[in-house]
Design a protein around this nucleic acid. Structure first.
Length: 463
DNA sequence: AATGATGATTAGCG
DNA sequence: CGCTAATCATCATT
């Protein structure tokens, strides 16, 4: 079997040499035309076997040399060049000057906008413009296969994904600096790869150009054809460039969306955390500015970050203050209602407890709207025993807090009283609060001396 | 879905 | 840098 195959193979090769015979062309005859045919047949045989011949370097050089020295060579060469020129030109005309790829342009724009490509503060410029510069001093023999580049791109993707995974591991806390670092990393990778890409492209081009120039001595290759070849190579490489840019864009987009997601997603703190924070806030109401250590402590207790604690206190302070006006309004409304109810149903006004509580707080604590707001707004806060205790600390004078008899009688006037009363009785004494001396700081804006204070009041025309 | 509560972000101040 | 005030985006409740 094996032998037979080989035989047949050999036969096939033989067939090449006898191809004419197979087509019934007589190999020999008296006819002069037969002789010509014989000659042609020989030539054809030579041509057909030429592909089977392997040339070693020396041989090739030798043949090239003899060819170059052939007397007919220049004439033949010019004719061939002419013919080729024509065909090349016709090809060229058909695919003239295509516009730059819009997709590539978009990618470029995005990369520049994201600061990945283009002029950059940190240097490492992406010598992109050099792409058009024809030959560089690269070594011609370091041709790089496209497949190599495919593999490299896969590698790049891998890197991105690893980075992004790492990024994701960071989980809840993603900082601006992280984002910038990652972006810088992407930029770095991109620019390195782009540099490599460019180098490879140039090297490959140079290699091909040199090869063609070399061959143009033995083969009819016009400069224009070389040019065209370069164009083709560029086009092929552009596909790779596109992939690189696309991957980079993708990576940036993912990074971006992750970052924004993390930034925007809001998670409520646990009830317990809110509890702890409120406790601290209300027990330091006179100076609700935790020190760095206190913040750390709170952060630990609440399982949140220090910056979250800071955010929380910032929000709390501002909202606490802000709500005083509203709280008053609401409390007054409520008070009015309660008063009406009380008037209608003397002695049975237990429903009005809430409102009564606010008013008591505001009028008796000497904290103006502050105390009032606390009761009104400290919803979750009120639910805890600790909080109530704290509250008492804040408003020690609300001994009447649970005194129903008082608010019924004071409901109406208390609103105005509240304003007056605290002017006379400078804010509470907190028995266990060492920070009372710092009173002014936070609550100052509630002081009648503060214009802001009156602003708040004025927002409440119903009194 | 409309609304309020709430954590995060931002500009601007000292 | 830490703070306030305004604002955004989402959660939670109705």
């Amino acid at each position: 079997m094996d032998d037979q195959q080989r035989m047949m193979h050999n036969q096939g090769q033989m067939a090449n040499t006898n191809v004419l015979n197979q087509y019934g062309i007589p190999q020999q005859g008296d006819d002069p035309s037969d002789q010509r045919k014989q000659e042609i047949g020989d030539i054809l045989q030579q041509i057909m076997t030429i592909t089977d011949q392997s040339l070693d370097e020396a041989q090739a050089r030798c043949r090239k040399h003899t060819l170059n020295c052939h007397r007919m060579k220049p004439a033949l060469f010019s004719v061939l060049c002419e013919i080729k020129e024509k065909t090349v030109l016709s090809i060229r005309n058909s695919q003239e000057e295509e516009p730059p790829d819009p997709q590539l342009m978009r990618l470029d724009n995005m990369l520049i906008a994201e600061g990945v490509a283009g002029p950059e503060k940190g240097g490492g410029s992406s010598a992109a413009a050099n792409a058009t510069a024809a030959a560089s001093g690269g070594q011609p023999d370091s041709a790089i296969e496209h497949s190599d580049y495919r593999a490299k791109l896969a590698q790049i993707r891998q890197i991105y994904h690893t980075e992004l995974d790492k990024y994701e591991q960071d989980g809840s806390e993603i900082k601006n600096s992280d984002y910038e670092a990652k972006l810088a990393q992407i930029r770095q990778v991109y620019q390195t790869e782009y540099g490599k890409y460019e180098q490879a492209c140039n090297e490959f081009t140079t290699h091909v150009v040199n090869l063609l120039r070399e061959q143009s001595r033995t083969r009819p290759i016009a400069p224009k054809e070389i040019e065209r070849m370069v164009g083709i190579i560029r086009k092929k490489f552009a596909a790779i460039e596109m992939q690189l840019k696309q991957s980079t864009c993708e990576a940036v987009m993912i990074l971006r969306s992750r970052f924004l997601d993390a930034r925007r997603k809001r998670r409520n703190f646990s009830k317990q955390a809110t509890e702890v924070l409120n406790e601290y806030f209300y027990s330091h109401l006179s100076n609700p500015y935790p020190s760095e250590e206190a913040k750390e402590e709170l952060a630990r207790k609440c399982q949140i970050t220090v910056s979250q604690v800071s955010n929380w206190f910032g929000n709390k302070r501002i909202r606490y203050k802000k709500n005083i006006g509203k709280a008053q309004e609401e409390a007054n409304m409520y008070a009015a209602k309660t008063a009406a109810a009380a008037a209608a149903n003397v002695g049975g006004g237990h429903d009005g407890q809430g409102a009564a509580g606010y008013n008591l707080g505001s009028s008796q604590s000497g904290m103006g709207g502050g105390g009032m707001y606390m009761n009104l707004n400290g919803d979750n806060y009120q639910s805890s025993d600790n909080s109530v205790n704290t509250l008492r600390h804040v408003m020690p004078q609300s001994a009447g807090y649970s005194n129903d008899s008082m608010h019924n009688s004071y409901d109406q006037p208390q609103v105005s009283q509240a304003h007056r009363s605290h002017a006379g009785s400078p804010i509470d004494r907190k028995p266990d609060d060492s920070s009372d001396s710092l009173q002014g700081t936070f609550m100052q804006s509630l002081d009648p001396a503060d214009p802001g204070y009156y602003d708040q009041i004025e927002k409440n025309p119903k009194v």
